[in-house]
Design a protein around this nucleic acid. Structure first.
Lengths: 191, 191
DNA sequence: TTGTGAAACACTAACGGTTAGGGTTATCTT
DNA sequence: AAGATAACCCTAACCGTTAGTGTTTCACAA
């Protein structure tokens, strides 16, 4: 119940940050596979157990920043003004997310991920969780009234659009093209 | 260059089969997490290294049978009679694959997979590889002449249909419904 | 101020998947 | 029959991850 009560939380956050920064730095410098958890812990000057107290797995160290991805997607649905059509809202949000993830600064991290099967698998797994959350949000929207299957499919398609665009030569155009398809698919499910 | 030259290959296949059978048996009996690779190796009477000579990972032991999944999908595209429309062909093949995977005998294995995050992650990862293979097959079909993006998106949508249907209450109906969406999406990409 | 409970962290040791290194046997080829 | 090689074995280790068990540091109230 105590919100900003001080030093302990700050120190914890600092420790977490230091671990994440150290890890990303080492990964980018020497490669994901070559750097062990023990290396990260030593360099960050913490115990190995402390690393796992802050991050669920080695892979999670790399995806520190993409915390709010899921929230942004579901909010694009739930916080949309009444009567605002669904697909354009999703389209806009995905466009923004893709731009964020293909920005200049994210390039080295993307290369890191592409270079490690373990990281790619982890990212896919995250994506599926996001798709499930989005599907739930879609099914809960009273204005849509589509079948559960239609909601789940649309959620997956949306995540597909994001995943494809992140790896495409022209991310923006890819989002637009896939969303033309999603729009048609969605219309085909109208009651 | 030697095709069926005998005993060695037969023995190798037998060893592989014995490992897979033993593993699945143990997993179903005592649970995936409770059974270690060392247990499997001991029960199959082989060395641990031999297990990994035949299977790339512990998870791969469970998916021994779904070898031809990828081939069946791509062949549904490439071996389709000329002028046969794409989506119905895919629809039929996915329907068949789903029936195969939701058949009576596959239920215990499915429960095994649902019970282990590691197995689910592995299955997703397989799915993505299949989607990429399918996308390549679509892009290579001279009759289709769609953009690379459209092919990739359609491939992913198809895999989504399979994944959703395998977990749905009514798999057949789910395939049909999602393919109505895919059909519309595909039409929307007509040149 | 000080005592108290809890949170954050450390250390050690281990577990389980996976691999490297190096040796043995069975099969294939010539 | 004599190499060549594939399949296999054994040992020992690496690495991610966790359990068990303290120890330090902070928050809070008496």
């Amino acid at each position: 119940m105590t919100e900003p009560s001080g030093r302990r939380e700050r120190k914890k956050a600092a420790t977490r940050q230091k671990i994440a920064d150290t890890a990303l730095h080492l990964f980018l410098e020497r490669g994901y596979d070559t750097v062990g958890i023990r290396d990260v812990a030593a360099e960050a000057d913490v115990a190995v157990t402390t690393v796992f107290a802050h991050f669920a797995s080695k892979e999670a160290l790399v995806f520190e920043r993409d915390q709010d991805f899921e929230q942004r997607l579901t909010r694009a649905v739930t916080d949309r003004p009444p009567r605002e059509p669904l697909i354009p809202a999703l389209h806009r949000e995905v466009q923004a997310l893709v731009q964020h993830c293909t920005a200049e600064g994210s390039a080295p991290v993307r290369r890191l991920i592409e270079g490690s099967p373990a990281l790619q698998e982890y990212e896919e797994s995250m994506s599926l969780r996001h798709a499930q959350a989005l599907a739930t949000a879609l099914a809960a929207d009273p204005h849509l009234s589509r079948s559960a299957t239609a909601c789940q499919a649309t959620a997956r398609f949306t995540i597909d659009a994001y995943a494809l665009a992140c790896r495409a030569d022209d991310p923006g155009a890819t989002v637009d093209e896939v969303f033309r398809m999603i729009e048609a698919a969605w219309e085909a499910t109208a009651p």
